[in-house]
Design a protein around this nucleic acid. Sequence first.
DNA 1: GAAATAGTTGACCGATCGGTACAGTTGAAC
DNA 2: GTTCAACTGTACCGATCGGTCAACTATTTC
Lengths: 206, 206
Amino acid sequence: MGRTSDARERLLQSAIDLIWTNSYAAVGVDQICERAGVKKGSFYHFFPSKTELALAAYDAHWESIQPHLDAIFSPLVPPLERIERWCHALYEHQKELYDRYGCVCGCPYANVGTELGTRDDRIRARVGDYFDRFQRYLESALRDLTAEGITLSAGVKVTAQSILSCELGLLVRAKVANDPEVLRELMPSVLRLLAVAPSSPTISTP
Amino acid sequence: MGRTSDARERLLQSAIDLIWTNSYAAVGVDQICERAGVKKGSFYHFFPSKTELALAAYDAHWESIQPHLDAIFSPLVPPLERIERWCHALYEHQKELYDRYGCVCGCPYANVGTELGTRDDRIRARVGDYFDRFQRYLESALRDLTAEGITLSAGVKVTAQSILSCELGLLVRAKVANDPEVLRELMPSVLRLLAVAPSSPTISTP
DNA sequence: GAAATAGTTGACCGATCGGTACAGTTGAAC
DNA sequence: GTTCAACTGTACCGATCGGTCAACTATTTC
């Protein structure tokens, strides 16, 4: 009973878009509503506060990218190629945002994590969850890599953490330089972290 | 002629402290004034805008840490030990802030760079300058390392970029996890990036 | 078709934002 | 000791912030 609406979904999408390309504090509730074509009264019908909207929006965003991560890190793909695919997809995604908005947007989770990390424990912890989830993709690939007989220069978990750190830092540098090409350094850096010799310029296929 | 005052310096210090432990947008001009014990009228006597204050504050902050960086990266210190000292100082500094404020604050430059990167070109470019400056310390150490006959797994510049990325990403992860101990991973990651075997648990002294 | 519920609307709130105006006070230079 | 610029204090500005509220409309269920 009662009417139905997709206003909630539009609000989630607007929130991610605006916060990603600006920042949490720089985007107001009014602005999110206007982009979503929703009046303020409706906003507070769906969400009790701006913070709750943000949490819901980031959950929705993760759910939207998870299938892509599942595909990129498919166990059917050779483990090193999974990581190479991910590096490439990361660059392409940021390049696309750069072409559309004129600026490197960086990692949406890291952005809000650094902005609100010291002020909102719930958002901080949630961002940490996303990092952990993503790290598991890396760990799985690294375990499969060792199963192929390749010896890492450190443990699987520690190596995955280093790769994640390197990625996050590279996204910061790319954003600050406003140059997506900075992200091309990712795969070479990963290879050096693995202490695996960079074999051929193309993806190594059997 | 006219009277003198250290209100300007107090404002610069307050701005760094507050923005570092919170965020740029979360800290108001009133708040900065109150902490500095300065009235708003005086604020706008010294600075034409909040943005100008931020730029001046970050310049002042860099000037305050540069002597420490000069000491840590002294050419009289063995190059690998310079980097090890830096990793240690970074941890100690963040730990100190954590003990004082109860939260990991991360890199002040990267924080404001990610927050305002897409909205204020001047601040973004300035943060890029600080990154470049710091990278030169690393490059110098790496060049001296190669002069000792040690071969890096990649070029000096690229390696320095990777180390910087790893540091920035680690600071993001430490902030999001609100755990300074995350930063202990820095030196091991750096060693893997250098492809130098981690020799002894203590600093290698001649 | 009546009732109940889900969603919409626009006016409105107090607080705070960055910034302004300007008279008043101080101290160094001469 | 006068002068003048440097600094301080206070009151105030319009805009915007996140959030509230009650009346209203549409839709589904029975």
